[in-house]
Amino acid sequence: MTIKKALIDVASIYKFIIEFFKTTFSPPYEGREILNQCFAIGNKSLFLVTFTSFLAGIVFTKQSQPSLASFGAESWLPSLVSQAVVRSLGPLITGLICAGKLGSNMGAELGSMKVTEQIDAMEVSGTRPFSYLVVTRVVASTLMLPLLVIYADGVALMGSFIMVNSFSDSGFQLYINEVSTSITYLDVFSSMIKAALFGFAIGIISCYSGYNSDNGTIGVGKAANIAVVASMTFIFIIDLIMLQFLNLVR
């Protein structure tokens, strides 16, 4: 029974994704609402992304410093931190924060709209709720995650600089030079692609769980829960797949 249900869920999420692409590329387009959603996503996540990235930069630098110092390679600290932040930490932290913050928000919001018949009300008034509610959120999260990741990388590197500066008293210009020489275009580009995939996964999973919720308030809670847990799981899966792929490219 569980396997059957899992297969039905896979088929239904597959249909949901197909519906997403079909609706996204057919008029009328929802440019205005996509911008609203982009603003909402940026606005909701900015504080948490700033806070966590800054701390991550500090903590990672502080933890790496003794190991490098024991090999007399403390000067490599900016290089090590920048590669770790841009390649992995930045996208991962931003993805997980957004999965928690945006995923629960989308899942609960759409779930609540579903059980209170607001989605049906849109449907019967001739509005395409899938386009208005789902496409806009998924496109916005796909577009905004890379921007948030760039921002998070910057903030994490600032946090890291504070620690590097406290250890070695090196200047900001030197730090930036070391960071910029150790990061390649491939690092930045792959990080953006990864972030976009994270955003897409968060959007599609959260909207799917909300849009298909039932069972009243219990269903809404379940939708929010599935949105967060499944989004986080998929973030790690995507991260692993991207890592394998990039290792082949490098």
Binding site: S112, T116, E117, Q118, D120, A121, E123, V124, S125, R128
Partner: peptide
């Protein structure tokens, strides 16, 4: 959609966009 624009539906719980 063409049909739905000609039919009004008042829901039991009102279904106002909250």
């Amino acid at each position: 959609i063409e049909l739905r624009l000609q039919v009004g539906f008042s829901f039991q719980g009102s279904a106002l966009y909250d």
